[in-house]
Design a binder for these strands. Structure first.
Lengths: 190, 190
DNA sequence: CCTACCGATCGGTAGG
DNA sequence: CCTACCGATCGGTAGG
């Protein structure tokens, strides 16, 4: 239990540094210093630098997957589902900004069996959102535009919140969600 | 002249590898191999690995700056200016996908006087787009939403084209532009 | 443009 | 969790 929380501390600190300078540019010695131990001691808690990245990327990925299931099963219009999706992304970025950022930017550095898996998981997530968009277009709720364009415009808009949004900025999370919904959902609606 | 084009070749190859694996994870030896010379020989054409990154980032930045001036000076409505901006971003990403990608993702690895400068240049660019949005809201052409939200949603949507768009995909550059304009400009319009 | 090489730093291990 | 240390690799230089 004490060991578990030590590992979690390491991963939490790693996410902060990885976000700032990127996975490759971060050394284990720097991470160790932030944690307050020697570099060699990190290896009593984690197997490798690689493992840290894996834990971050897949933990974020699984969180998104659990949300999308909830959204699919809800009894809502397609517009409402999108609004719910936006809310979920905003919330996750505010709760775990570092992990989300690392998963988005540094997954390329995963080593090979895991990198392929990560891409597949992400592709699966995208397909499920694409489904919502396609259905919304079929029922006439949304404009007819290319589904990939709609999908990636939506995801990109949400993804980059982590780059510029800081809570206690001039805008609250609630306003952020509301404005994004106005812009994006109304942009799609007929 | 021959020397100049050799340097350009090195930078062009570097952009390809940097995009694939990131600046930090790319070694000069790998770059040299792609260029077809020994690592030490790279230094007859460039001063440092750092210089390559600088050239890429600032060359992209200056290209954006020249476009935005053109857009500001055009005698167009604010919606038309946005459509023009979208067109410009799409075109640049199709013409120089690797450089644009590296500038967007690896500018963090610039060393210190240059990193600060890069951030300032980018901030200046963002401010000029924010101006177009603000004016469009004041004249009632656009919905009233938080300008930063509108700005970053717009820029993010354009920025991430480079991650998934491949010409000769199922969609042409013209369709891409048209659909993005439909989604984003109409999302902003009242 | 190459051979030969440098000091620094990397991720990680042995052994306690 | 530390000391001591390893082999590998890094960006880059000297000298031709």
């Amino acid at each position: 239990m004490a060991k578990q929380s030590r590992k979690e501390l390491i991963i939490r600190e790693a996410a902060i540094i990885f976000k700032q300078k990127g996975y490759s540019a971060t050394s284990m010695r720097e991470l160790a210093e932030k944690v307050g131990i020697e570099a060699a001691s990190l290896y009593n808690h984690i197997r490798s630098k690689d493992e840290i990245l894996e834990e971050i990327c897949f933990s974020v990925a699984h969180e998104y997957l659990s949300f999308i299931t909830e959204i699919e099963e809800a009894n809502q219009s397609h517009s409402e589902k999108l609004a719910h999706l936006i809310e979920t992304h905003v919330k996750l970025m505010i709760e775990r900004p570092n992990e989300v950022s690392v998963a988005n930017n540094d997954w390329k550095n995963l080593s090979e069996p895991k990198k392929k898996l990560y891409k597949e998981v992400r592709k699966g997530y995208e397909n499920r959102i694409a489904n919502i968009l396609t259905k919304g277009m079929q029922t006439g709720e949304f404009k007819q535009i290319n589904v990939s364009v709609a999908l990636f415009t939506l995801l990109s808009s949400l993804r980059w919140i982590e780059l510029w949004y800081k809570p206690n900025r001039e805008i609250s999370p609630e306003e952020l969600q509301a404005d994004l919904t106005t812009f994006l959902v109304n942009g799609l609606k007929k």
